[in-house]
Nucleic acid binder design. Structure first.
Lengths: 172, 172
DNA sequence: CATTACTTTCAGTATATTCTGAAAGTAGGA
DNA sequence: TCCTACTTTCAGAATATACTGAAAGTAATG
């Protein structure tokens, strides 16, 4: 039986919870767990350390690490004298949020806009009542999604302090 | 071979696209398709009409319709003289967005907060450097997630016009 | 160039999710 | 009460997604 410390316990809870959470965000569980693990590490870690800690195979670790690098949520670090790669997570919460916002915009909002634009355009000259209703619905949706995307983009460009001010006004 | 109209084509594109999109949002494809189908219908539809149009089984249609009712994205309508239920979607884009925002907050932000709170609390009295770093990270994350949740909640309570004004300031 | 220390790939397997369809359940109307 | 028109359930099948581990690939080092 392994002895556990309060820190280990809390960290394990975070890793497990973040993994579950990730699933409902369309992010795979292992990827979220690796992210959580690196996020709570005080030093860069190797693939083997990650495999060992999360009890996952090399292939699984490798692929999900690459995904996280692709999202720029983690980056690879080369230690002098060491041949292998180490990985560390971005720790700044605001930067993480901006990265995720941008990535989701690119992967979800932009494709959605393409579809809505196409649906709106295809029906813009039709005269019957049903077509007009459809066209109006698509146009409204497109405008809304487009606005949301632009707002997200702007927010991700703005300094954290400014966003906090606006947010504070809303909440109060 | 069935002849198609431009409206049918556009509508099919929307249904298919919305379905794919839904997947990346952690919403199942059929549920998103049913929603898209009802969103672009000018009248309430029965389970059988939905089954027929999307070529899905009764069980599948039934379950996903119930889910959508649970999300309050669609509602059941009783037609006089008819024994069966009909369903119609909320058409107002802003209302749809608020509903989704509230639901996701409840399902994702709140559970996340529980975890972060627990992790932060468990480590608040620990004195070693690693524990302090962990505690600080959890606390930052918690504060950020909490703020986001409250902002989302407020936004969903505010009139659309006010939000549009704030959004406009940001984008320009 | 051969060895070593890694990284990458991928076919096969395991798991999780979604879907089907038939059977059981329910309630209005005769 | 029974019939009929519908709704609900759920075991098993189909599909999609994620994971393993071993083999192949790559490049630094001596």
């Amino acid at each position: 039986m392994e002895a556990t410390t309060p820190l280990q316990d809390a960290r394990d809870e975070f890793i497990a919870g973040w993994g579950t959470l990730g699933s409902s965000w369309g992010i795979n569980r292992t990827m979220a767990q690796i992210h959580a693990f690196l996020l709570t590490s005080t030093r860069p870690l190797s693939t083997d350390e990650i495999m060992e800690a999360l009890q996952i195979s090399r292939g699984n670790a490798h692929g999900n690490i690459r995904e996280l690098v692709g999202w720029t949520l983690i980056r690879s670090v080369i230690k002098k004298g060491e041949r292998k790669e180490f990985f560390e997570a971005e720790k700044d919460v605001w930067k993480i949020a901006c990265t995720i916002a941008r990535e989701r915009k690119r992967r979800e909002i932009e494709p959605a806009l393409e579809i809505l634009k196409s649906c709106s355009d295809q029906t813009k000259d039709l005269k019957d009542k049903e077509s007009k209703a459809f066209h109006a619905q698509m146009t409204e949706l497109r405008d809304f999604v487009s606005l949301s995307g632009r707002a997200l983009e702007s927010a991700a460009k703005t300094e954290q302090s400014k966003i906090l001010k606006v947010a504070a006004r809303f909440i109060s």
